[in-house]
């Protein structure tokens, strides 16, 4: 069953048709990769899913409900979490505080005037956040300001923050871009583990073919705002159109 159903989505920026008639169906508890050259419209597509952009045409259904016209926080509360291309964390807050915020959002919803009790007295949230940090190997850094962490740690923290909300759909936008090989491999292992341990659907945009072929069960190739093909990794590897449009270029880049 498809948890995410994108139908005929189009988005135009001035003279540029960034997305053109995009159809995409992501099966529940699968990992779906979206690949394509720079400027293909991959991030724009994600923006249309999370309420950052409203598509000009088409529909986006999540678990049978339309996400169009809803605010980003409402869409998140429906169960979609997003990891950004450049880590979006609370840089001025400590790692532990970063981790607690999504736990509060999960427990208390979009707004709660919880102004008199102290944060540390909320044992359930503190324990959950500590548990997540331990799981991500970040517990030693709990008192650190998030902005002063390494890029790899920031990425892991951001993924952990998204997971703390127990999302049904996790969207990742080039999670390994700019990462060293070792960090990339760690991220692959982490995502594999998440897939195994949770009932979660993952949609990932990625340039690194190693990452894509390690994780994805299905791949959509996007070029100039239109899906070129959608198939299993094996088929995609051998697809002549894909080799021509994308893989050749990416192999050079990698």
């Amino acid at each position: 069953m498809a948890i995410l159903e994108v139908k005929n989505v189009g988005k135009r920026f001035g003279g540029l048709q960034a997305l053109n008639n995009v159809n995409l169906s992501v099966a529940e508890n699968s990992c779906h990769a979206i690949i394509g050259p720079n400027g293909a419209g991959k991030s724009t597509l994600l923006n249309c899913l999370v309420g950052k952009l409203i598509p000009d045409t088409g529909s986006v259904m999540f678990d049978g409900q339309s996400v169009l016209g809803r605010k980003p926080y409402e869409i998140n509360q429906m169960g979609i979490s997003r990891v950004f291309q450049t880590p979006e964390i609370f840089g001025d807050l400590t790692v532990m505080e970063n981790m607690m915020i999504p736990c509060f959002a999960k427990r208390d919803g979009a707004f709660e005037l919880n102004a008199i009790t102290s944060v540390t007295s909320q044992r359930d949230v503190v324990e959950k956040a500590e548990h997540m940090l331990e799981d991500m190997n970040l517990i030693d850094k709990r008192g650190m300001h998030a902005a002063s962490m390494s890029r790899g740690d920031k990425r892991r923290l951001e993924i952990a923050m998204c997971l703390a909300q127990d999302p049904r759909l996790l969207l990742l936008d080039e999670p390994t871009a700019g990462m060293a090989r070792a960090d990339t491999n760690n991220t692959i292992d982490l995502l594999k583990r998440i897939k195994d341990e949770r009932d979660i659907t993952i949609a990932i945009i990625e340039h690194d073919m190693h990452v894509v072929f390690s994780l994805a069960e299905r791949i959509t190739v996007l070029a100039q705002g239109t899906p070129l093909v959608e198939d299993t990794p094996e088929k995609i590897k051998g697809h002549p159109k894909v080799r021509e449009a994308y893989l050749g270029e990416s192999q050079d880049a990698a």
């Binding site: 505080e97 915020i101 999960k106 707004f111 923050m161």
Partner: peptide, 16 residues
């Protein structure tokens, strides 16, 4: 303090 630090992250963490 999260509002001051990163409103984008807040919105995408389900917080209004």
């Amino acid at each position: 303090r999260a509002v001051k630090s990163n409103q984008q992250r807040m919105n995408y963490t389900g917080l209004n």
